[in-house]
Design a protein around this nucleic acid. Structure first.
Length: 364
DNA sequence: GAAGAAGGCGGAATCGATAA
DNA sequence: TTATCGATTCCGCCTTCTTC
């Protein structure tokens, strides 16, 4: 297995939009000499406020999602106008960010942080700007593409797709594959399965899955998938993007390797697990229906009645029941009973070697 | 109107620039 | 080279919005 390529951290919401990384390139391109790292952020910040103020007057983006609001930009620009000097504003900036007492201070703090993430995306993640803060070959190539200020053109989509693959191939493609998997098995969320795949199959131990990191980062990946229109109606990667993968030896190799692992994951246990999840849903639904319908037996329902509606063999039902009890007992209170009101000679099921015929489930 | 999802936001942890 | 300190990055809480 190739060492997986992935971005270890993506911040929602500021990394959700790709376009700001182009704005930085435009900004760097306007400078006549290279700018030290200690100055680039505050200089870019000023440029960002000024530019967005101008652009928001012409047109508002389809969705802000990580872009500063027009309200915030308006008031910050007004504030700067009152100071009437860029130099003075920039020298005040560190104090504003440190103290942030007023509403405007907080707006500045928040938009400044946004600017910081845009710079980081362009520089550290996509390599559009060199460590010396000059445009890289990629950065220059991006500026060659003319497009709308907010929207991503088809050529830009191709460009960004390539940058994403270079920086985040394994987790980005994995995310696409799991979106499809979720659709295939009609799952609400695939985050737990995806975590398992990343951990056990890709051997990426970076994420501590008790935290919400991966799901947060996936929100960012998801908005990239959407803004670049990567998936078709059936949630397969579109042909033009597959062609990009196929035309690059490295991507092609990684893709096929990843597909193999993914298939393996799906076939090893996943399908079985999904079958169990489906049965569990059915079992609980029937239990609850019976609870309303049947004569009250202190919440106990005869297992044979549930089994009958589930249309499942006695052998499979027995197997399911054991798995249900063992995996669910930490989530719910599950009680069994072997006593019935009238004589019931039907066979018993066995839980931990005890014969049972009725079940009672209480949510914790 | 409750539950769940989405999004905004504050601030702590960490990183890295600077100066000695 | 290393210590310091402020800037940057990351985490996840909490409010707001959406859906049932």
């Amino acid at each position: 297995m190739t060492e997986p390529v992935y971005i270890a951290s993506l911040h929602r919401p500021f990394n959700q939009q790709l376009k700001p990384s182009k704005w930085i390139c435009t900004f760097v391109d306007t400078l006549d000499k290279s700018i030290p790292s200690s100055q680039i952020l505050s200089e870019f910040y000023y440029y960002l406020i000024k530019t967005l103020n101008k652009e928001y007057q012409k047109e508002l983006p389809d969705a802000f999602n990580g872009l500063p609001s027009d309200v915030a930009i308006n008031s910050i620009w007004e504030y700067i106008q009152n100071i009437n000097s860029k130099k003075e504003f920039l020298s005040e900036l560190p104090n504003i960010i440190l103290d942030r007492k007023t509403v405007i201070d907080k707006q500045i703090y928040s938009t400044y942080k946004a600017a910081s993430y845009y710079l980081n995306l362009a520089k550290d993640k996509f390599n559009l700007i060199s460590p010396k803060n000059t445009l890289t070959v990629n950065g220059k190539a991006l500026l060659e593409i003319k497009s709308n200020f907010f929207r991503i053109s088809q050529r830009e989509a191709t460009f960004y797709f390539e940058r994403i693959l270079e920086a985040d191939f394994h987790l980005f493609i994995t995310h696409c594959l799991f979106i499809k998997l979720g659709l295939k098995y009609n799952l609400k969320s695939v985050i737990a399965e995806q975590s398992e795949f990343i951990n056990d199959y890709l051997k990426i131990k970076h994420f501590n899955f008790t935290s919400s990191s991966l799901s947060n980062y996936n929100i960012v990946r998801n908005s990239w998938v959407e803004s670049l229109n990567v998936l078709d109606a059936k949630f397969n990667i579109r042909r033009n993007y597959i062609e990009i993968i196929n035309s690059n030896v490295k991507f092609y190799e990684w893709y096929n390797e990843l597909l193999l692992l993914f298939k393996k994951f799906e076939n090893e246990g996943f399908k079985e697990k999904m079958a169990f999840v489906k049965r569990k849903g059915m079992f609980l639904k029937i239990y609850k229906q019976r609870l309303k319908k049947d004569k009250n037996d202190l919440g106990f329902i005869n297992l044979h009645n549930i089994k009958g509606e589930m249309r499942i063999s006695a052998e499979n039902f027995q197997k399911f029941l054991v798995e249900f009890y063992e995996s669910e007992k930490k989530n719910r209170n599950i009680y069994f009973s072997n006593t019935v009101n009238s004589i019931d000679t039907r066979e018993r099921f066995y839980i931990r070697n005890r014969p049972v015929i009725k079940i009672k489930i209480k949510d914790k």
